[in-house]
Design a binder for these strands. Structure first.
Length: 327
DNA sequence: AATGCGGGGTA
DNA sequence: TACCCAGCATT
């Protein structure tokens, strides 16, 4: 067999006892140390959906209060589907990535229309909803419907790499398909829910990106990265990882403009300004400009118009002749 | 494969 | 300051 000249299947190199050891160690740790999170106390697919959209690129601590507020404002999928979009955008502050709010409501509307109000329970069905990618689809299938599916987010990617491959280096990075294959290979039968949650708890509290607490880690023995680093006396690991990141970053380093001059910054300013207006009220671009940019001049009008058009295209604002407002 | 998209917390 | 984060869609 000469088929694996490519490292296309890292999982074929994994020893079965290595896998089972990592599984039992991590599941035992999770049983004792798991975080108490509200979306782990429910299997309401709608609540899980809300939590997963909020958690995209957003830390748990920041989602916690907003999760409760959002469910109070829109207790069911049907409530969310018929709510004014402006209300949804208003509740979203300050989570950021405001398009998520619009897409979440669009998902609710699509599920009402196409799925009789029932959120799909398969990865394939979930992927048909705009705003739900492979991670979120896997998470909802697993956490709401207890399907035995693997799913890979940034935490799980990092933790699996360190346990089963070693310290992350540019050459050892797996592409998405290979990483998902690894995640499927090591998924403990019948334990997908606990395993996926455990990997994320591990990544968030012990096996962090820059400064992992390896000395407090319950997987020292089965962890390839730990063995690697201890062999070369590379602890404390945070120093090593940060150093490696610096080297990797050198290649792609570029001079970026200050955030407060970016498109993204001003989009945020505009939406935030519109949120402060009385419900339904529009504001003209001429009045809007100086409110989001102190040194605004007439020459900036085309710039502002492009900005607002972009927001309208994303469904974040309602842009008409006589001004702009939340949709 | 690269880019746009928010915002707050942290070293 | 720069980096980080339960990603996704678009190009």
């Amino acid at each position: 067999m000469s088929m694996d000249s490519q490292p296309s299947s890292i999982s074929s190199q994994l020893a079965p006892d290595h896998i089972t050891r990592a599984q039992s160690d991590l599941l035992r740790w999770y049983a004792a140390e798991q975080r108490d999170l509200p979306w782990r106390r429910t299997s309401d697919p709608y609540a899980i959906l809300v939590s997963e959209i909020m958690l995209q690129q957003t830390q748990v601590d920041r989602v916690l209060p907003k999760y409760q507020q959002f469910l109070s404002a829109f207790p069911t999928l049907a409530d969310l589907a018929v709510a004014p979009t402006a209300d949804v955008i208003n509740v979203w502050v300050p989570l950021g990535y405001n398009m998520r709010a619009v897409r979440l409501q669009a998902i609710a509307q699509q599920v009402m229309a196409q799925y009789d109000g029932r959120i799909p329970d398969t990865v394939e069905g979930l992927l048909s909803l705009k705003g739900i990618g492979r991670y979120t689809a896997g998470a909802i299938a697993c956490f709401a419907y207890h399907k035995q599916v693997a799913t890979v987010d940034t935490n799980i990617r990092r933790v699996l790499h360190r346990i089963f491959i070693g310290v992350e280096q540019p050459e050892t990075a797996l592409n998405d398909a290979a990483m998902l294959a690894l995640a499927e290979q090591v998924l403990p039968p019948g334990e997908a829910y606990n395993w996926n949650q455990a990997l994320m708890d591990m990544g968030a509290t012990i096996c962090t990106s820059n400064n992992p607490r390896c000395m407090a880690c319950p997987l020292q023995e089965p962890c390839k990265a730990y063995q690697e680093m201890s062999q070369h006396s590379l602890f404390p690991s945070g120093v090593v990882l940060r150093q490696m990141r610096k080297v990797a970053e050198k290649k792609t380093s570029y001079q970026s403009q200050p955030f407060t001059s970016t498109n993204r910054y001003f989009r945020g300013r505009i939406v935030d300004l519109l949120r402060s207006l009385p419900a339904g009220e529009r504001i003209t671009l001429t009045l809007l400009g100086p409110k989001i940019k102190p040194e605004y001049s007439d020459a900036d009008q085309p710039w502002l118009q492009r900005l607002v058009s972009g927001l309208a295209k994303d469904g974040l604002v309602d842009y008409a002749e006589d001004g702009v407002r939340l949709p």
